[in-house]
Design a protein around this nucleic acid. Structure first.
Length: 444
RNA sequence: GCACGGGUAGCUCAGUUGGUUAGAGCAGCGGUUUGUGGAACCGAAGGUCGACAGUUCGAAUCUGUCCCCGUGUACCA
């Protein structure tokens, strides 16, 4: 026999995927319950769509690639390409197109769901994450856009953030369209390169962005990025237009008016908000946090936005000849939770069971009697689920941070009582069986 | 994709100019009272040093290729 190397399965996670543990999940649940309350208050319907869609219905199809739409996870099923959704907006558009006659117009829905992106992960950026999405479909009324910004603020404040902790930035695709028109910049390449450069002002600053608008930029690792090759005076004019924090874009002005009617103040017009290039057609928004966020090693990181959105008046019409304007906003919940945990001390109560120690397996019936009394009173409890000596059972109780351990051995059974040990203080007390539930309810 | 850094025990890491059987701390397992945890002590166990090829009497260490991870940068509907 030839000895072959045993191939062990890898215990590593695919890059960009994470195990999420209880503490984080409980805070995420808290955020989700706040979201649901706010959405009900604002009159939205709850919707769920599947994780997979046909590839051509969730994004652009790239016919020259063997694998459709780089950036999504796809596989071929029965000769048709399927992909995991990369956001909740495209599936919504598909849903609206499919159910166009049945749904009310306007249609307001919210959705919570996992989305997947087949991209290189980075600090705080995963390839699988939970997204929250709220959309108004079938209305051009800019009150919808304004309400989205307001409702996001309400959610954030419900989660414990102050007004100073975040800013809703708004702009409009029309602002930059107008600007480039004025400067007679017509090349699509130049416009998209310039937009991407402007999107980086927050992170890189004007000095670097000027290079990206001009000839190009070399980053500190030595990598070179081609620039938009604009002329110096054009760059200057762009800079001036963006520094002048007043919008000349009608949709932005109207939204600001609506904000005033709602007495909503925590917004900022910021023309450097760009957000993707493809489907937004009008107002765009972005939600930024104003406090420092540290990574797991304690290093302060550029956290970027936790969410954003905008108006996409032509997305639904891609599915057919449907005239259907829409606007939406989304939040990356995992990122929000990560930041919230650093800002606020959540004393989320993690419930741990009381443990009934096992002295003798043949006494299981007696243990179960105690267990049933506790569980009937909704007290989290268990009979020690492993095997081993009392020492091991105590170590287990300690490790899972159980509040109390119950001893119900021969001595106690004879006296019709249990011994209760407080794992924090080490105190022990004897309690008659009939008083057990009441006594425990008192101290827990 | 591009650039730089890194892959040694379950985890965090050390390993000197290439030299016998590759080390530590923590965790885990057993014990120091078989009815008492969080501390301490003792003991045993745990690794084809990311993969493959090459140089060499000899490779965790040098060279090449590939894979994976991290950071920056680009892309991101």
């Amino acid at each position: 026999m030839i000895k072959k190397k045993k191939l062990k399965p890898s215990k590593e996670l695919p890059s960009g995927f994470e195990d999420r543990q209880e503490k984080v999940l409980l805070i995420r649940d808290f955020v989700i319950s706040n979201i649901k309350e706010v959405m009900i208050k604002y009159g939205f319907q709850y919707l769920e769509t599947p994780s997979f869609e046909y590839t051509d219905s969730i994004g652009k199809f790239l016919p020259d690639k063997d694998r459709p739409g780089e950036g999504v996870f796809s596989f071929k099923d029965d000769n048709k390409w399927l992909s995991l959704r990369y956001d909740l907006t495209a599936p919504l558009a598909r849903y609206v197109a499919k159910n166009f006659n049945e749904i009310p117009k306007p249609f307001k829905r919210y959705q919570l769901g996992t989305v997947w992106r087949n991209e290189k992960p980075g600090p705080g950026r995963y390839r699988e994450f939970l997204q929250f999405d709220a959309d108004y479909v079938g209305t051009k009324n800019l009150q919808a856009d304004a309400e989205l910004c307001i409702l996001i603020s309400e959610i954030l404040e419900k989660c414990g953030l102050d007004k100073a902790d975040y800013t809703v930035k708004i702009s409009s695709r029309k602002f930059t369209d107008k600007l480039f028109e004025k400067l007679k910049i017509k090349s699509k390449y130049k416009i998209s390169t310039a937009l991407r450069a402007l999107d980086k002002i927050d992170r890189l600053g004007w000095e670097e962005v000027r290079k990206l608008l001009g000839e190009g930029r070399k980053d500190k690792s030595g990598d070179y990025t081609e620039g938009a090759n604009l002329k110096k005076d054009q760059i200057k004019l762009i800079e001036n237009a963006l520094d002048n924090k007043m919008s000349d874009s009608e949709d932005v002005l109207e939204i600001i008016k609506i904000f005033e009617a709602y007495n909503f103040k925590n917004y900022k017009f910021d023309p450097s908000v760009i957000r993707g290039l493809e489907y937004y057609t009008g107002p765009i928004f972005e939600v930024n946090l104003n406090f420092e966020v540290k990574n797991l090693k304690g290093k302060t990181i550029q956290f970027g936005s936790i969410g954003g959105g905008g108006r996409y008046d032509s997305l639904v019409s891609n599915f057919g000849n449907l005239d259907c304007p829409a606007t939406g906003i989304s939040i990356g919940l995992d990122r929000l939770v990560f930041a919230l945990m650093q800002k606020k001390d959540f004393n989320i109560k993690v419930v741990r069971p009381l443990i009934i120690c096992v002295f003798d397996k043949s006494k299981t019936k007696e243990y179960v009697e105690i267990l049933n009394k506790l569980r009937e009173a909704d007290i989290s409890s268990e009979i020690y689920p492993g095997e081993g000596k009392l020492k091991k059972q105590m170590e287990y109780a300690n490790k899972i941070e159980s509040p109390f351990v119950i001893f119900y051995g021969d001595d106690e059974i004879k006296k019709n009582e249990v011994k209760l040990r407080n794992l924090k203080t080490g105190e022990e007390s004897s309690i008659k069986i009939e008083n057990l539930v009441d006594e425990i309810k008192k101290i827990i």
